[in-house]
Write a protein that binds this DNA or RNA. Structure first.
Lengths: 334, 334
DNA sequence: CTGAAAGCGCTTACAG
DNA sequence: CTGAAAGCGCTTACAG
């Protein structure tokens, strides 16, 4: 059995389709008697208007696209939840697409958003761009999109509204605070600072912190690899064997933090260094293990991004907004 | 600037809209020369067909709806990832909606799916149904949906294809194994077995296990509360003070597992009971803390559900499938 | 307050 | 292989 249409209702109610449409869109313009009658019939036939038809006719969509690297990572899961909260409040729905931090999939995702004619897109760009050619292609696709785009979490220099955390300040602040508390050899385990914007931002903050604290840069304490657990695990194990020991270690994302912990616990060396992780690690709290972390509210990141989009939809001509969210350092062990 | 339409292309190429449409849908029916010319023009105008218009015209949608309780819970995040994998392979896109395990939101979500005319829905029903009236209403809405529905993770007795884990067997197996290894006083911390299907399934498994092992039911070891961390935390703290101690504790979801751990670690009593949690707790592995758990592959759950939907779309008349996934007990400490 | 008509961007028998 | 025309389910000026 097929869905009832506006024509079915019109026929049954002995009115025109226009009138039925009006009770949907501007009921105050319809005489009460006919309105009631039409509503009654709608109920009987359990009529619901087709969003597809409405969108085509009105030439706007009621859905918003979201592109994130991977939803099974809790950081993005929470980001997504924050987005949903605001999007639902504004009677929009959510089309989801992941990009796996891969530029090819990013392009596929963008193509989908285009063909779906979404109202706007909330976009966490893939950041493992090695090939500049693809990046250019992505920029072209973004420009071709006829809807507002909000760029989230990673600043890849696009001319859109943006929201991200101020990781650079957070890293700087962390280094300065560690130094104040007596650390002088501060190691950093980070992603690839050449191909990954996030990693280079964080590294810059680290450098600024050293300078501010009057500490020299010791490149033997700087580790740029992949944002994977295994990289931090191996690095930390090496570090533990060194002659010249650091006194503090900063891990620059949640996978690296886990790898670090895995290594120090495995070696029974959990109290060797002062450790600061980027993002809280909830399970440590649960186990009653104190730790230090840079706190980033990913729900809030999502909410702010979605609000930015809603604002942009309402005021297409307003100036580009760039929101920087604070990421405070939480100290529990030093 | 607006998107180019099929008419724009047709005009420029001096052919009819039908021909342009053909190069999109059945290019082999178009003479090579005209096809090439049209494709060229499409590129020049960076034309992409509107999914909205196409869906309306073809009377089918290319998007699939997903309703899950909350994406920020990693269990559902992983489930969702599994779904996405299959859905993308089949050239479908994903409309996301959460229900917060709340029946009101469940209805909102279903209404959205209806109005969006999705191709099918992957549905994890909210399970905190106190009011039977609402449940009936939800069943009515599901029946009214003109598309296939796959019911995931919770068997609420709906006449659809289903996939879930065999928690009942897993619990039975767990109790039997614990008994074999010498435990005789096995506590269970569970959700509300009256209002929550999952909780009652798990409790049944527990009861079966006791029977099979020849152990008596001691109701002072049975805890039915909320699936929240705080409930397990409080319960465990009480338990630790008791005179008559259990020798094993089973926690029936990941929040409860965390609450249990929080309590035993806080009291420094982490080795008091043999603990089995439902679902692996990754952080424990990382910290090198052995634990026992019932393993459920939530990615696989998502994949299977999506495959079921794809199959149902292809063969609408095939018999209802009910898939039960195994959830093996992994023992590390006993 | 209501209806006839055109239009949104596509697809698809039908005829040639 | 191609085009004219009708149709998908709505909305919206326009006229009354």
């Amino acid at each position: 059995m097929k869905n009832a249409t506006i024509s079915d209702i019109a026929k049954r109610a002995e009115v025109s389709k226009a009138t039925v449409s009006r009770v949907l869109n501007s009921p105050e313009k319809v005489e009460q008697g006919t309105r009631l009658k039409i509503e009654q019939i709608m109920k009987e036939l359990s009529y619901t208007p087709s969003a597809t038809a409405r969108n085509l006719s009105k030439q706007v969509s009621s859905t918003v696209g979201v592109i994130v690297p991977e939803i099974s990572n809790s950081f993005f899961g929470e980001l997504f939840s924050g987005i949903e909260e605001i999007v639902n409040k504004n009677d929009l729905s959510l089309l989801y697409c992941s990009n796996d931090d891969d530029e090819e999939k990013d392009m596929t995702a963008l193509a989908l958003m285009d063909t779906q004619r979404v109202r706007g897109v909330l976009y966490v760009p893939a950041v493992n761009y090695e090939a500049v050619g693809k990046r250019k292609e992505i920029e072209r696709m973004l420009a071709a999109l006829k809807c507002p785009v909000i760029c989230i979490d990673r600043d890849i220099g696009l001319p859109f509204d943006t929201v991200h955390f101020d990781d650079k300040s957070a890293l700087r602040q962390t280094v300065v605070t560690l130094a104040e508390k007596g650390c002088s050899r501060i190691a950093i385990i980070n992603g690839n600072n050449r191909s990954n914007v996030l990693a280079s931002e964080r590294y810059e903050g680290y450098l600024e912190g050293l300078k501010e604290a009057g500490l020299p840069l010791d490149t033997s304490l700087v580790f740029h690899g992949e944002y994977h657990r295994g990289y931090a695990y191996e690095t930390t194990k090496q570090l533990l064997k060194r002659k010249e020991q650091p006194d503090a270690v900063i891990t620059c994302n949640n996978s690296l933090g886990r790898g670090y912990l895995q290594a120090v616990y495995e070696m029974g060396r959990q109290n060797t260094y002062t450790h600061v992780s980027l993002d809280r690690i909830e399970m440590l709290d649960i186990l009653g293990i104190s730790h230090n972390y840079i706190e980033r509210d990913s729900f809030e990141l999502g909410r702010r991004a979605a609000e930015l989009l809603v604002g942009r939809i309402a005021f297409p001509e307003r100036e580009t907004q760039n929101i920087l969210l604070e990421a405070p350092l939480i100290r529990e062990t030093f």
